[in-house]
Amino acid sequence: MRRYKKFLSRLYAIISNQNRRHMICGAIVTILVTWHVCESIGSEDFIPVNSTEGSGSGQEDSVVWSNDLPPLSTEVDFLRSTTQKVVVKRATNTFYNGILDRQFFSVFSYLKPTVPPTAIIPLNRPLQRGNSIPQLQYIALWAPRGQQPHWGAIYQNSAGKLDGSFIRERRIYNLSASDMQSTPVRLVQYVGSEQENNFRFAWIKAIDSDMATVISERDYTKDCSPRMAPAVLQDHGFEYLGEADIDNRVMYYVENNFVNTVSGSLFTNNVYLLTKQQCRCSCPATSY
């Protein structure tokens, strides 16, 4: 019996010592793990990521221009640097829409016709007329008070006098008509240098055009008024200056005193639109 009690006493002492060792080892392990975590956090620049930052496009270093709605000129892309681990901002390129300021128009009078040397001609050259002599035309804007403005052509008629034609509601209006001779007409011109204006004119095929940059006018008294733009149709050696409804992809032009309509694939692939292109760094020294 004494031996049994003595055996139990020794066994209890051994177990107590083992529990004490396990507790000490557990404490040491906890201290080491905590120290390692603290060292790891202290040696890195930890920056929490705000999930609401960024453009949300998945390509933070790209700028996407909409063909439907013009972007803001102060639009900002958010970029995350992989080296500095800080959030930086970069302003996008200044956006240019197709609206022209007053100085880019010159008043034209049928009774006292004058064409400034700064006037713009379609495609920067006389228009082709098949096997006939090419015809020099100028881009004009007819803007009756309180009505939709329309683009048309100023040209030399068969009598050798400058005349003009415009289309409104599929009807032809000639400046030589008595009720049109005093109507307000303006020629498109380019004044100043490209470096000063930071844009240039360019004729772009409809399929390749950003419609937000097309030179256009609309009736601002009506919310649903379409944007009308100067346009040139190329068709089997003939070229016609008219106007395009760029919202509905339709062009109208005059030929042999008839109003002709262009739409569908012919509009997409054969119509050129006058656009306002932004210069990159600086524009080349080109005169219009």
Rank of each mutant, 00 (worst) to 15 (best):
Q189W: 01
R3S: 13
S57M: 10
V259N: 10
T92I: 08
V262I: 14
S287L: 04
F258A: 14
G26L: 07
M251R: 01
Y110D: 02
T74V: 04
I246M: 05
A119V: 04
W142G: 03
M211S: 13
Q137M: 03
L123T: 01
S216H: 00
Q234Y: 04
Q59R: 10
Y138E: 01
M180R: 15
E53P: 12
F78G: 15
G264K: 00
Y252G: 01
G54Y: 07
G130E: 11
E255Q: 08
D68G: 15
S40Y: 11
S51K: 11
V88W: 07
M180Y: 06
Y110E: 04
N93L: 10
S106Y: 07
V88H: 08
Q84K: 11
G164D: 00
F7R: 09
S216P: 00
S225A: 08
N257T: 11
R129P: 03
W65H: 14
H22T: 07
D101V: 05
D210V: 15
S287K: 06
T183Y: 05
H150T: 03
R10G: 03
R129A: 06
S287F: 05
S182I: 15
Q278E: 11
I99Q: 11
N174H: 10
P126C: 08
L274Y: 08
S216R: 00
S178P: 10
I121Y: 00
P116L: 09
S106K: 02
S66M: 06
E169Y: 12
M228Q: 02
R102W: 04
S225F: 06
E255F: 06
V191W: 01
P71T: 03
S16E: 11
R80S: 14
D208G: 11
W65S: 10
V37W: 07
R200V: 03
T92F: 06
L136V: 06
N198W: 07
T286K: 15
R21Q: 06
R2S: 13
L32V: 15
W203V: 13
G56A: 02
T114R: 11
Q18K: 12
I31P: 12
E239L: 00
P117H: 10
G237F: 07
M1H: 13
Y240G: 03
K222N: 11
V88F: 13
G130D: 10
E255M: 09
M251A: 02
R80W: 15
F199H: 13
Q277H: 05
T213R: 15
C283P: 04
P144H: 04
D45I: 11
G58D: 08
Y288G: 06
G237S: 10
G54R: 12
I204F: 02
A153Y: 00
S55P: 08
